[in-house]
Design a protein around this nucleic acid. Structure first.
Lengths: 211, 211
DNA sequence: TTAACCTTGTAACAAATGTTACTTCTGTTC
DNA sequence: GAACAGAAGTAACATTTGTTACAAGGTTAA
């Protein structure tokens, strides 16, 4: 087995911790579109994202979904930490939005590293911070924004994490992420097109630079 | 200055930590209705709730509000931990829903206690866990529930934290907490009354036992 | 090529929620 | 008691969002 390439996260952790990570971490690649963690799954590993973006969604009993946020490089999913610490099951579903490479750390290192490594504490707390902020952002959007504004935000965010002005996505998929319906999304997208915000094509939406 | 009465939280922490808390913690009482932490305030202390309930709300630029959740005994506000660790300002407002007694711990003990005391680590992570769950609950409600269901939940929750089946509250206040409008809340309450869920009076709502 | 399917556009309608306006009632203050 | 203010009831209407139904154009596979 070859050595892990830790260069992307070198700056996040102190060198002793990097050695530990190298010892116990497992490198993994997951292709775009694949499930990373499912609802009610027991979480045995803490994922450290090296590359790519993960989309985290919430689902209710009747199967309706809502996109919560994206997790990118240098972060972990606090929901996962949540599970690890509470030994509870995942309350969310995580999907790979693009090809993702990551390191898996077995949960049992969580607590000892917290008392040993300051950089681990910072990392974990930063993750919690970021997650709480993202959830607040999601709540703000749901509470204070109309659907057309949420749609704009969604397109911008998606374009950002995919590093691409053109999104290859159907109206139906957008509707699922925003927990709305296809017809409504089509209607609002048409509106955004008229406003010069996007150019619509089959299976594609191109974000236009605003003048 | 007399010694702190730590009996309510005795079971949460190991004895050495309790000694530390006794040394550096400041006991405080805040009467019902008073502000505990305001938006954009810098947080210098970690509050440990001993008694009472704190209501945590989010506000947008135009002054619209939304109730996020209640914090009760044995918990702290993870949003606050958030601020302490990130040295950022409060993203929420905390109000005392009933008379509250609490202990304030200066932020500088946060990190050293994390590496020293396992019970402190558990406590802090439990708080994060609880908060993340509460926020998810709030998101679920906003996304998947209709306003009448949110109203029911609100009344039940409020009754629970106040330990009282009769709520002394106006329709206007409810509307503010749910980020709706007074007329709509009146309409839905009337509906709940017809369904035998509540009995309405001036400034009061009594929850009826369901048959 | 034809059939089946997916994606999008569009219209008509329904439901949920918000807004405005006015009234009534009740308690408080002068 | 009169005047006032806050709380709640109600009606009419507007807006936002969701639903159903159908048509039109691509895409894919038999």
């Amino acid at each position: 087995m070859k050595t892990l390439d830790l260069s992307p996260i070198k700056s996040l952790f102190e060198s002793e911790l990097l050695l530990e990570i190298e010892k116990v971490g497992v490198y993994k690649k997951i292709p775009q579109g694949e499930l990373m963690i499912d609802l009610d799954e027991k979480v045995q590993f803490i994922p450290l994202i090296l590359e790519g973006a993960v989309k985290v969604v919430r689902e209710d009993e009747s199967g309706d979904e809502l996109l919560l946020y994206f997790v990118e490089f240098g972060n972990t999913c606090a929901m996962t930490l949540n599970c690890c610490l509470g030994h509870s099951k995942s309350e969310i579903r995580a999907l790979c939005e693009s090809d993702v490479s990551l390191i898996l750390i077995p949960v049992q290192y969580m607590d000892p590293w917290l008392s040993q490594f300051k950089s681990w504490r910072s990392f974990v707390f930063n993750s919690f911070n970021t997650r709480l902020s993202e959830l607040l952002k999601a709540i703000d959007a749901l509470t204070f924004l109309k659907l057309d504004e949420r749609l704009e935000n969604y397109l911008l965010e998606k374009s950002k994490v995919l590093k691409n002005k053109t999104l290859h996505i159907t109206h139906f998929e957008i509707a699922a992420d925003l927990n709305s319906s296809r017809v409504v999304i089509s209607r609002l997208l048409k509106q955004l097109e008229n406003e010069g915000f996007v150019a619509l094509g089959r299976n594609s939406i191109r974000l236009l630079d605003q003048t």
